[in-house]
């Protein structure tokens, strides 16, 4: 097990509020833990809220980044496992946005005894289309173009050139390029996260779920359509789907009140009969 202080620094872990029940909030691809700031006030009074940045995002320690480890969602799920173990968190409600729902599912399989339930905000197990049986929303070419677009938005010369110029090939130069901006500006980590997110297919994982799951879906979401929401519901045991009358992929930012209401209702249900369904 890694030392608590090291994990706190590595993943920029922040603990807010107090309570027996832990809400561990995992941000999605692109941004950092600050995306939870609209939702946090609804829970701070009664829950212990644990926020963090995945290694490679936000203010995490980039020296701990491994391109190989974080090329796969399992690598990100290890961050969640490490945090739960280092802080000895139990009875955890995993709240994950978008891809973090699946990352959470992977983590919950590794440490089922520490997890109580999962809240999935705009989840998708697979963004690719496999017609006719599955329509994740995107073709392979669309996603290749995404990587290309990300390249053009984050050219990031320094990360590649500096080590070559200085002859320094370790993580130190790379680590110096810490970003404090809200959304990822590091070209290596952002692109790696994009590939891990958008080219993966974790549909096979859904039937293995062992915890109560609340699925929150937008009526119209370019990244996770209602088809995907219904697919998640159909294939995830112990799950419940709530469709919020909204547009967009960031329900927790645009509709925090509704999202908080639905989460509270679900958690109250679990308290009553253990399932929340």
């Amino acid at each position: 097990m890694l030392a608590q202080d090291d994990i706190i620094t590595r993943n920029n872990v922040n603990v807010l509020g107090s309570g027996e029940q832990v809400l561990l909030m995992a941000h999605g691809f692109g941004c950092n833990q600050q995306m939870w700031r609209f939702l946090v006030p609804y829970f701070e009074g009664h829950y212990k809220i644990v926020l963090f940045d995945y290694v490679g995002s936000g203010s995490s320690d980039l020296a701990a980044y491994s391109k190989q480890k974080y090329a796969d969602l399992a690598g990100y799920s290890q961050d969640i496992v490490d945090i739960c173990e280092a802080l000895d968190l139990n009875n955890v409600v995993l709240v994950g946005h978008s891809v973090s729902s699946i990352i959470g599912l992977l983590a919950a399989q590794k440490i089922p005894e520490r997890i109580q339930s999962q809240i999935m905000v705009c989840p998708s197990p697979c963004f690719l289309n496999f017609p006719p049986e599955y329509m994740g929303g995107f073709n392979r070419e669309d996603l290749e173009e995404l990587i290309d677009l990300m390249d053009k938005n984050y050219i990031g010369w320094a990360s590649y050139l500096a080590p070559l110029v200085t002859g320094e090939l370790e993580g130190k130069v790379f680590a110096a390029e810490l970003t404090t901006s809200f959304c990822t500006t590091n070209p290596i980590t952002a692109k790696n996260f994009a590939k891990a997110t958008f080219f993966s297919d974790y549909r096979h994982l859904l039937p293995l779920n062992q915890h109560p799951v609340l699925l929150l879906q937008s009526e119209v979401d370019a990244l996770a359509s209602l088809f995907v929401g219904n697919y998640m519901l159909e294939h995830t045991p112990q799950s419940k789907l709530e469709v919020v009358s909204a547009r967009g992929h960031c329900l927790h930012m645009t509709h925090p009140e509704e999202v908080a209401g639905l989460i509270n209702q679900f958690l109250r249900g679990i308290a009553v009969d253990g399932t929340g369904l």
Binding site: G28, F29, G30, C31, Q34, M35, R37, F38, S98, G137, F138, N139, D142, L143, E145, L146, D148, L149, M150, K152, N153, F182, C183, F198, D221, A222, L223, G248, H249, C250, M253, T254
Partner: peptide, 29 residues
């Protein structure tokens, strides 16, 4: 916009607009 641009719009641009109120020099198609 292209589907790839929609992903950037939803994953970067919209969260940034909601968080900080502005978003600069984003390349889209």
């Amino acid at each position: 916009f292209t589907p790839a641009s929609k992903i950037l719009l939803e994953s970067f641009v919209m969260p940034m607009l909601l968080h900080q109120g502005h978003c600069d020099e984003i390349q889209l198609t």
